[in-house]
Simulated assay, not measured.
Amino acid sequence: MPISRIAIGSPAEASQPDALKAALAEFISMLIFVFAGEGSGMAFSKLTDNGSTTPAGLVAAAIAHAFALFVAVSVAANISGGHVNPAVTFGAFVGGHITLLRSVLYWIAQLLGAVVACLLLKFSTGGLETAAFSLSSGVSVWNALVFEIVMTFGLVYTVYATALDPKKGDLGIIAPIAIGFIVGANILAGGAFDGASMNPAVSFGPAVVSWTWTGHWVYWLGPFVGAAIAAIVYELFFIHQTHEQLPVAEY
């Protein structure tokens, strides 16, 4: 069972150079991702007089986030694993791929990266507000919670299949592309309903800077639940298999 592989880690791990470098890589990647993703929405809104809520704005947000996440994951992959998301880190923790103490380092770095990115955006745009995630009219917190669970499940499942699975082989080369694509696709699916966060840090940064917390818990609980389910499902059925696979040549 994947739960049996969960590790707390040693307190000394927090001061190890490789752990600190990994946390710094997560901070920088999150800053890059949020600055580009959130900034694209602010730019589109300015150019189109709040047109970010239109279909074209949704497509622009999906493309910007997909491209930015592809880059952010790629530049951190060889240092920290390129999580760029507290939910992805939590999923890796549930599957035993990272200790709790290192996860905490990653979470702190990721949240700081998102906040700093939003502060830089506010300063560089002359005081424009970074829009906090919110629910659309007619969408309840429970609707949004299901959206976040399902979308984050798809994201973390993709991370497992392309990056964490020891059998991934050459598939690992396209992991950043696949991860960026699933986030972009999910934004097209859920962006009009709850903003399609899938990432607690992405929600946290704008919430801190704009000090808007309405329904904010949805953007933590949903991604963490979705990540945990994806980790358990993938570890249980595809990594820790209980039956012998037929050789590929048999098919």
Rank of each mutant, 00 (worst) to 15 (best):
G205F: 03
A68E: 05
E13M: 08
A62W: 11
A76N: 00
I63W: 02
A192T: 09
G57F: 04
F181I: 15
V88T: 13
F153C: 02
W142Y: 12
A201W: 13
V139K: 07
I149V: 15
A161N: 14
L47F: 07
I63E: 01
F238S: 11
G195Y: 04
D194P: 01
A201Y: 08
I3T: 14
G96V: 04
F147V: 15
F147C: 07
G215M: 04
I187Q: 01
G169T: 02
A68Q: 06
L105V: 06
T214Y: 10
I173W: 04
I177T: 09
A68I: 08
F90A: 02
E129I: 12
F27D: 11
L47W: 02
G190Q: 06
W142G: 01
A230I: 04
T53G: 13
G81Y: 06
G180C: 10
W107C: 05
V115A: 12
I229C: 03
A22Y: 08
A230S: 09
V156N: 10
P206D: 08
A12D: 12
P55W: 01
S203F: 13
D170K: 13
E250M: 11
S29V: 06
T214D: 15
V225T: 05
L221N: 03
F133W: 08
T54K: 01
V150Y: 00
E148K: 02
D170T: 10
I173G: 05
P200M: 01
